[in-house]
Design a protein around this nucleic acid. Sequence first.
RNA 1: UGGGGCGUCGCCAAGCGGUAAGGCAACGGAUUUUGAUUCCGUCAUUCGGAGGUUCGAUCCCUCCCGCCCCAGCCA
Length: 571
Amino acid sequence: MAEPETTDAGRDFIRDIIQADLDAGRAQSVVTRFPPEPNGYLHIGHAKSICLNFGVAQEFGGQCHLRFDDTNPVKEEQEFIDAIQRDVRWLGFDWGEHLYHASDYFEQLYDWAEHLVRTGHAYVDDTPPEAMRSQRGTLTEPGQNSPFRYRSVEENLDLFRRMRAGEYPNGTCVLRAKIDMASGNMNLRDPVLYRILHATHPRTGDAWCIYPTYDFAHGQSDAIEGITHSVCTLEFEDHKPLYDWLIEHLPVPSRPRQYEFARLNIGFMVLSKRVLTRLVQDKHVTGWDDPRMPTLAGIRRRGVPAAALREFVRRVGVARANSVVDIAQLDATIRDTLNPSAVRRMAVLRPLKLVIENWPEGHTETLEAINHPDDPSAGKRPITFGREIYVEQDDFMEDAPKKFFRLSPGREVRLRYAYFVTCQSAVKDASGRVVELRCTYDPASRGGNSPDGRKVQGTLHWVGASDAVRAEIRLYNPLFGRPDPGANGDVMADLNPASLEVLTGCLIEPALLQAPVGEAVQFERMGYFCADSDGTPDRPVFNRTVGLRDTWAKVSGAKVLGAKVSPDGRG
RNA sequence: UGGGGCGUCGCCAAGCGGUAAGGCAACGGAUUUUGAUUCCGUCAUUCGGAGGUUCGAUCCCUCCCGCCCCAGCCA
């Protein structure tokens, strides 16, 4: 079985660093972690981080932890905690026993905070938020020391304990590290380590009313778990000096190192939890698993296999340069992954009735169709042919250019696995719309070949009228209408109004009734589709995972634009 | 105008002083009962720019230009 996933993981600067650390003996083993905050669903950007962290651990014989960075109870929910685990597993990774939460370390973190207070490296600041902001200075001007910066260790300890005891309402005061208010790095201007949040935490409930900030929790959590390589995205680069400062001023059990890589960006997509949350809340999509969403749940529902995502991430690579990956790269990877294994079926999205005039009325024949052109082991299936069948509306053109290898009055084509048919005429309704094709067939061409060696230029997919099943098919287009959503202001203004196209009168071959939900099959000549959970036995629903490459669309499109092909289609 | 990063083909991305991998896209052509797949072939004399060091620089140095991140008691 062809496996597009390469065993050679490819090289990048992260793997180079780890290899060098191992070679030089700076590390004996590799321990990484994937640390999502449970405030939303995982998206394809997270897939890059997951594949990197878990992948690296696998390759170097180490381990990767799944750690929930749950330090802000007001944003986090159990639904997200569950969804994240489901999605990481689906992507194909296993954290084994290593499931952790920053909240597991709250007590230890608190003790370390007191340690900082005792060693004079942290103080309780009563400055209100707005005042604190102005005291912080600007990007070009240094900040001012808080008047509370000089409190004694005893007073700070007492105040901090009272914070923990719940004596103060939200916002009254915070615990700050005493570093350097004049630092060019804003993160070093006495960063907040603890804030008061009277909120119920999904895991610790009401045990705490003060919570550590990301900066105070992250590095220390890494140290507790023995993380050797703490890999995160570029925007945390400025936090590294603080990460290191904390590690160096605390009696932590290990010395993790942070490394940053560029986050994933894909054209026509938005990978921002903030925006994705809004899309869900404002009902621009049906939910986190709407197939148009870049979430792992949405992508999965669309029919994309996890292997395709892993391969995509591998192809894209890991580097430090900000970039925007062409969405065609994702589509190509999905096709490459699906092509060798997806079973073939026939479905007509926009049916046009075709009547074979010289076929006996009421007679049907069972023909044989293969399930995969390159894999005989995929087997065959019976399909029913008869006097009336349906073909794709796009496969007929009344006044067609020579290069149109499909149906047109007088032209002969092959109906896949069936017969050669020649279009005799088109029946139109009162408005002039073509509603039916009258054709004749060549009885000698059964199976799709003519004994006289006659060739036809086109082969069409079809569904027999006698056993066609009606279905709904949902076509998905990019959720956003421009490659750089939001570049001109409001992201929501760039939503693509045509991101979802629902086709209700589709006709599919009966074998499709057995298609497992979520598993993509190829509708010949149309693309990859998978059954959706919204479907019922009498009303199946399919999602388009991705279309097939369509050279004809390019050629005909160019013709419409008057660019490449002359009117007769001969270029 | 502070600090930290990044700039290699249309889009990703290797390259780590010895004379530009690969993928996607594009474009030819072959095979094809999917205008699919597969297969062959074309596609950076040049690495943001200008100097410098060197026998030799995409790789080292200097200056310049451009882009990204940072002023949450978010992560």
